[in-house]
Design a protein around this nucleic acid. Structure first.
Lengths: 163, 163
DNA sequence: CTGGAAATGTTATAATGTATCAAACTTTCC
DNA sequence: GGAAAGTTTGATACATTATAACATTTCCAG
């Protein structure tokens, strides 16, 4: 069997973070967008794991670090990061996760494990195509797709096989 | 061109409501579930249009009717209706809409017009299949799919053609 | 070095959703 | 019928998520 996707197996997660931050800096430079210290720190916090983080979790971390932060601080940073394709909002969880394909034009598909909470972001052209087709068949002009799959990741299926 | 789907054109909406209520009664009878007056009234309110309704909108209507309702009243009724496949929650809007395919086993796909707010629920086997396939390719056991497409419905495309 | 734009600080509040426990109602079973 | 058990509803309080509005600071172009 092929090896599991990153979130589902041990890995040097610091590499994920570093990569994400490096990508973010490059993307913001290209787009003449200002990746300010707060925005960068929020992105880093979001990338602490492959589990989505709530806005108030981020806020708590900032506050613990002594930052003078209030809800708008966090929501503004998250808005900025979303607009530049650096984080995604998971609507079914009211939480945020780092974008695994920053810079690439893509329609995110999220596999959300209900047991361990990890999320894998996929780009599935077949899925995007089928969705586009279904929308067009109704003469609907699709602009934004929310596709979130809850279930059990490979690891958690083996750990809790009875359901 | 084929005629537009129901939400996008004038129709005798009362027929939608009656049908939905009749279906709900039949389904609850089959499942030995109690469609109490409050639950039925909430379902009817949700079906007032093809636009999703927030829980607090439902609550306001109940209160206006003199019902002794609090938030849990509404959320309980909505939970019941969801569990029996009579309404869907639209995660990207925090709102609820009547299920257009009650009784059928289906994965809902929702086309949400950002202009008029109407929502069309589709069953697209090709889409479901593609999603299932993508999940299986990652050894992920999909249990619940959230698929919501925001965009412009046919009517609103013609009315506001410049974008 | 200054005027306008962008970002942040600050306070308050809106919107959405749940926990908890008590009371009423329904069903079951003797 | 009537008590026991389960389900539904009432009622209060609170938790969580998100935004409005306006003041202040920072940044950058000219």
């Amino acid at each position: 069997m092929a090896s599991q996707a990153l979130p589902y197996r041990p890995h040097n997660h610091q590499a994920c973070v570093s990569q994400a931050l490096a990508d973010a800096r490059a993307i913001c430079r290209e787009q003449n967008a200002r990746l300010t210290p707060t925005r960068e720190r929020v992105l880093e916090l979001i990338w602490q794991s492959h589990k989505p983080l709530g806005a108030y979790d981020v806020l708590a971390e900032l506050t613990a670090e002594g930052q003078n932060a209030a809800p708008p601080t966090v929501y503004r940073a998250l808005d900025f990061l979303q607009q530049h394709g650096l984080v995604h909002r998971i609507a079914s969880l009211n939480a945020f996760i780092g974008c695994a394909h920053a810079g690439e034009h893509h329609t995110g598909m999220f596999l959300i494990c209900r047991n361990c909470g990890n999320v894998l972001e996929l780009t599935a052209p077949g899925v995007s195509g089928a969705i586009e087709g279904a929308a067009q068949a109704e003469n609907f002009r699709a602009e934004d797709v929310t596709l979130e799959i809850a279930g059990l990741c490979p690891r958690c299926q083996s750990e809790a096989p009875h359901d």
